[in-house]
């Protein structure tokens, strides 16, 4: 018997078990590193860059000098106080699968599974295809949480392997999209239409950022747009707090000084708009 060892690796920055808000049931969410968008409200700025990053926390440092001032992957491993932190890891399909498989029993009881999120998982499509296949072979339900910014060919490669897309939507207005995410939404909307025509199972996810995505205009446009799309439900995501410290630690420019949480009443109002349009609408993931 020969087992071909797959040398292909992916770059991820977290594996979150017991995720309840990234699709149905109890799930393990794998966060891919690297993203084509730069949404200014992003919680996970560590997902922006695909490369592995090293951060240093002066407050944790106990000045043991084991690192001799060199802060990299190898000194991070030896750092007694975890002051040198590596963000991201290269992981093989096998190693990632063995982490995913650990909670298989919970997926079976709860009709859960694995969700590939990020960052943008479709940016590492070759790796994604391999890990999706592995999950498919082992009857693990798969979801891909995507911002939609990928080529049609990439979708074509993964469509048959994905049980559910969590498809993020921010703006219909292209100028606003460019302003707040750094990219045009042209391809994103095109891909959504394409998936919709293929009758693939989709949950739309709309982040509600006060004064940015929750405007009357944007909500109305999203509702109108979605009337032409086949999807199962829409999830309205409210954001709590802001990862400002993460930005500072990573040396990324802070564009949004503070992120307010949408009020309960506004959330209900928006929910009603989607419900009136006949959409199954869920608050939260």
């Amino acid at each position: 018997m020969t087992i071909e060892k797959n040398k292909l690796t992916g770059t991820i920055f977290n594996i979150q078990r017991f995720s309840l808000h990234d699709g149905p049931g109890i799930r393990t969410t794998v966060f891919f590193k690297g993203c084509p968008l730069r949404c200014i409200w992003c919680h996970n700025p560590e997902s922006f860059d695909k490369s592995i990053q090293v951060t240093f926390d002066q407050e944790k440092c106990i000045e043991c000098d084991i690192c001799k001032g060199v802060r990299d992957i190898s000194t991070s491993e030896r750092c007694p106080a975890n002051a040198i932190e590596v963000i991201g890891e290269e992981i093989s399909v096998e190693d990632l699968y063995s982490e995913i498989e650990k909670d298989k029993g919970y997926y079976e009881t709860s009709n859960g599974g694995v969700t590939f999120s990020g960052g943008e998982p479709l940016m590492q499509s070759e790796f994604l295809v391999k890990i999706l296949k592995k999950c498919n072979e082992n009857n693990i339900h798969t979801a891909v949480d995507t911002c939609g910014q990928a080529s049609k060919e990439v979708f074509e490669k993964v469509n048959d392997l994905v049980d559910l897309y969590l498809y993020d939507m921010k703006f219909i207005d292209n100028d606003l999209h460019e302003k707040y995410t750094g990219s045009s939404n042209e391809k994103i909307l095109e891909n959504l239409k394409y998936l919709s025509d293929k009758n693939i199972r989709i949950f739309i996810r709309l982040p509600l950022i006060p004064g940015i995505t929750d405007t009357e205009k944007n909500i109305t446009e999203v509702v109108e747009y979605l009337k032409r799309i086949n999807f199962e439900q829409i999830n309205l995501l409210s954001y709590h707090g802001y990862a400002k410290n993460k930005y500072i630690k990573l040396g990324i420019n802070v564009e949004l000084d503070q992120l307010e949480t949408i009020s309960e009443s506004r959330l209900e109002e928006i929910k009603n708009k989607f419900v009136s349009a006949g959409f199954k609408t869920v608050i939260g993931g």
Binding site: L20, H21, G25, I26, G105, Y106, T109, S110, G112
Partner: peptide, 19 residues
């Protein structure tokens, strides 16, 4: 208090018991 929470906890218990 999370709408999915109680179901998830139930599933945690059921899975632990299967083990």
């Amino acid at each position: 208090n999370d709408p999915k929470g109680v179901t998830a906890i139930k599933d945690l218990v059921r899975t632990y018991f299967k083990m």
